Simulated scan of single mutants.
Amino acid sequence: MPERTAAPLPPPGPGDEDPDLLLRMLCHEFRTPVGALAALTRALADDRRPLTPADRRELATLARDQADHLQQLLRRVVAAGGGAFALVAEAEPTVPLGRILPQVAALVPAGRLRAGTTRRAGVCPVPARRTRQVLVNLVENALRHGPPDGTVGIFATVRGAGLTVLVTDEGGSPAPVIEALRRPVPGAGFSGLGLWIVRRLVAVDGGRVTAHALRPVGVGVEVVLPATGPTVPAPPAAG
Rank of each mutant, 00 (worst) to 15 (best):
E3H: 13
T5I: 12
P8V: 00
L9M: 05
P12Y: 09
G13I: 10
E17Q: 13
M25E: 03
C27S: 15
H28C: 14
E29M: 13
R31P: 08
L44M: 11
A45H: 12
D46I: 09
D46A: 05
D47H: 12
R49H: 13
L51Y: 02
L51R: 12
L51G: 10
P53M: 02
L59W: 04
L62N: 09
A63P: 05
R64Y: 12
D65T: 09
A67M: 13
A67H: 12
D68C: 02
L73N: 08
L74A: 13
V77E: 01
V77G: 05
V78W: 01
A79H: 00
G81Y: 05
G82L: 09
G82F: 03
F85A: 01
F85T: 05
A86F: 04
A86P: 08
L87S: 01
A89N: 06
A89Y: 01
A91L: 04
A91S: 11
E92K: 01
P93L: 06
P96F: 08
I100T: 07
L101A: 10
V104Q: 01
A105R: 15
A106G: 14
A106R: 03
L107R: 06
P109M: 06
G111A: 07
L113M: 11
A115V: 03
A115L: 11
G116C: 08
T118R: 09
R120E: 15
R120G: 02
R120M: 12
P125A: 05
P127S: 09
R132T: 09
R132A: 10
R132Q: 12
Q133L: 08
L135S: 06
V136L: 06
N137V: 07
L138N: 06
E140L: 14
H145Y: 15
H145S: 07
P148A: 08
D149L: 10
G150Q: 09
T151V: 12
T151N: 03
V152P: 01
V152Q: 09
I154R: 05
F155A: 11
A156L: 10
G162Q: 14
L163A: 02
T164E: 15
T164M: 11
V165P: 01
L166M: 04
E170P: 00
E170V: 03
E170G: 01
G171R: 08
G172Q: 10
S173A: 14
P174Y: 07
P176I: 08
V177G: 02
I178K: 08
E179R: 15
L181S: 00
R182T: 11
G189A: 12
F190R: 15
F190P: 12
S191F: 07
L193N: 08
L193E: 04
G194T: 07
G194K: 09
W196F: 14
R199P: 01
V204L: 14
D205F: 09
G206R: 11
G207W: 01
R208I: 00
R208Y: 07
A211L: 04
A211Y: 03
A211N: 00
A211V: 02
H212V: 07
L214V: 08
L214T: 06
P216T: 08
V217E: 15
G218C: 05
G220N: 03
V221G: 01
E222P: 00
V223H: 03
L225S: 06
L225D: 03
P226F: 09
P226R: 10
G229L: 11
G229W: 13
T231D: 11
V232H: 14
V232A: 15
V232M: 15
V232N: 11
V232S: 15
P233T: 12
P233N: 13
A234H: 14
P235W: 14
